[in-house]
Write a protein that binds this DNA or RNA. Sequence first.
DNA 1: GTACTCACG
DNA 2: GACGTACGTGAGTACG
Length: 934
Amino acid sequence: MAFGKGHHLHLVDGSAFIFRAYHALPPLTRKSDGLPVGAVSGFVNMVWKMIEDNKGPDAPTHAAVVFDKGSHTFRNDLYDLYKANREEMPEDLRPQIPLTREATRAFNLACLEQEGFEADDIIATLARQAREAGGRVTIISSDKDLMQLVGGGVEMLDAMKNLRIDSEGVEQKFGVGPDRVVDVQALAGDSVDNVPGAPGIGIKTAAMLINEYGSLDELLERAEEIKQPKRRQTLIEHAEQIRLSKQLVQLDDHMPLDYGLDTLEVKDPDPEALLEFLTKMEFRTIVRRVSETLGVEAPTIVETSDTPAAPDEPEMPESKPFDLEAYEVVRDAEALQVWIDRIRDRGYVAVDTETTDLNEMRALLVGISLSVEAGQACYVPLMHRDENAGGLFDGDSLAGGQMDRDLALSMLREVFEDDSILKIGQNMKYDAKIFASVGIDIAPIEDTMLMSYAMHGGLHGHGMDTLAERYLGHKPMPIKELIGSGKSQITFDRVPVDKAAKYAAEDADITLRLWQTFRPGLHRARVTTVYETLERPLVPVLAAMERNGVKVDRDTLSRMSSAFAQKMAALEAEIHELAGESFNVGSPKQLGEILFDRMGFEGGKKGKTGAWSTPADVLEDLATTHDLPARVLDWRQLSKLKSTYTDSLQEHIHPETGRVHTSYSIAGANTGRLASTDPNLQNIPVRTEEGRRIRGAFVPEEGNVLVSLDYSQIELRILAHVAGIDALKEAFRDGLDIHAATASEMFGVPLDEMTPEVRRQAKAINFGVIYGISGFGLARNLRIPRGEAQGFIDRYFERFPGIKDYMDATVKFAKVEGFVQTLFGRKIHTPEINAKGPGAGFARRAAINAPIQGTAADVIRRAMIRMPDAIEGMPAKMLLQVHDELLFEVRADAADALIERAREVMEGASLPAVHLSVPLIVEAGQGQNWADAH
DNA sequence: GTACTCACG
DNA sequence: GACGTACGTGAGTACG
């Protein structure tokens, strides 16, 4: 039947339905296996309600559900920042997307989507066609972007509020008729979609201007006539940006479509197909309702034994015991295919890789374990060596009974790179890097370690052993049983396959069970957003940075090592001479005996073990009166630089890449900071001239430069914001030297009369505040009497009373709730806060510091997560993060462009989630090595 | 394996 | 009134 006069087309904004369903509903999982289906369930209910509500005389004759497809549209080509501030799609929503398509078809509704276009464009095109054919259209959506389509037989319907929107409704919302909505939107911009518009002009002003001038074109043409000088200037200066904005908001109603309106005719749902889908999803209520309405018998949904924990129950599930004998060894393609089918059926899989090395850059893939259901897991051995062939010549031959590695990987690739299948791992960054090394880009992912970090940060570690014991009541098989320890340790590929399989499959099994346990907990603890925006998206970003590595010049380090060794030998001789005897300068115990027992110096302290303690500050005091401690300090500095940096860094240069590849632990630091290990590249010297030379060994490849961008005073800025200190905020807004400003405020010294000494004291106090200041700590840091330090603190609190209030409030919150929070919702638990004794002081200061340090950590995490997209296409790589600094390597001619782009991302990183009342400022530098890039 | 020391933010 | 303290990390060395 050809669409025409008297016909009525319903166009449903399907993507909006999905997001509404996802965010409005608690996380629902399919009972039998834990598959996330909350959004599907909500979607199905909304579609069903829509169908029921629209029966009767005005029922649609034609209908379609329209979806967005892909994230890149022609609008991104017009403006690369379009929708750039959108948070990533939550990963537990991703596998539900194909299911909503399936649901639509199960309802016998046309399901439309097209690559490169938004759902809105398809809707616009169909609405135009229907109107031109003389029919009526109802758009089921509340999206204001669609309001431009209203009029001439087109209406909108907000299905949630059951509200019809016609031309009049649009005029109420925008102050202009539907035909001028685009003009108003172009002027006002849209923060949600990141449409720039004209700065300082909102919907109200935009509507007024359009009404006055009739149209946007007219307005821009006659902008000179505008009376308000500022507004006139804005419109003239931003005319291009406004025209671009119009292009962005203007829907394309002439899309090429492969189907006509005629094909969208409404058909009744086929009860069998619909109920089959709903039964598969295990939606009991809707199955019953649909059956009743359609007058058919409801199919039964099989009850399964492993019921997930109810919301208030503890997180320990009553689960199947672990049975190592039940695990399967996959030895051929047929067996692997069976597992792949099971995975596709489920939509998710727990994965674990076994390798030859804990360091991903050296590690070779040995085998892969998979699990799709608690208690059921398999191991796919790939590169195990023949344990019996330990001889001189056949020691490297492969053990029998293993699949061809390349075949197995090509089969698994289809699953690991499939957008609709969730891959669950414990510390997925490790596995992602291993897979990257064999050319597999694993996504989307879920990480049980990071789920635990988001939920239990501060309570305990997040390694698999800890989590399995705490939350599954199960102690995993220790790896030592397989590979031994110490000198006789072997690599995993030497472990017999059958033994290896039990260990490996158990890990996948545990990971799957942890995921099932943690999933509901994440929402209950209200940290889903933290996990989804600050933890999980960081995994691929860090994996890429670590694989990039940073080039380190071996010769520079080697020359420095030799020079240090010579100087140390000379100092050592001098020290022995001064001491009158030979001893190990590197032994604090022996040094203490020389200094305090034999030479009779005062001021030494003994440690827990009764040995003398000789930290640098004590030696510094002694150095004022004697040469020996001074020489020891020099020796220690060189010793540190040599062993920790110039020597050890050389050993970390990767033989193939010639670069140093650190590893970041995401869940290591309690506050949300990253930690760098193996080697630690977050503590490369910078404070002394001698040490700073080590940074000179960090270099770019030929034709490139290193670019460093760092947040200026980010923690103090955050403090000013969270504690609401107006004086500090103003100082930051005015771009003042914050330590000098603090000193001026405290001591009444005018800024232009500030002395370095007074500024230094204020600086120490500023840092002290962030650390949960104490008179003792400040006194020690500034080397002043304790009473004087306390006086400073009292004066500071007097000048900035908000700080004290903030500290007290934070501690009180921690005592009541057991945790503190960052501005982005990260929780840091404080289990010791109510303890008695000295521990209470530590916990108190940690609780004060955590929200500040943690918020800063969250900010740079957000910047890092956005960075790959922001610098896409530029000849630049992000290499390192050092808490408030990001280091890039970029082709020399693109350095300035990179700085501009990266700075924009970093300075705007808190948005749109948090609007700080102080600006975030990023300082940038570039050079031929890391020292010069500062 | 623990303690001490010291490099960074 | 005494006690013991700046916050967060990782790594190398000595020593038991």
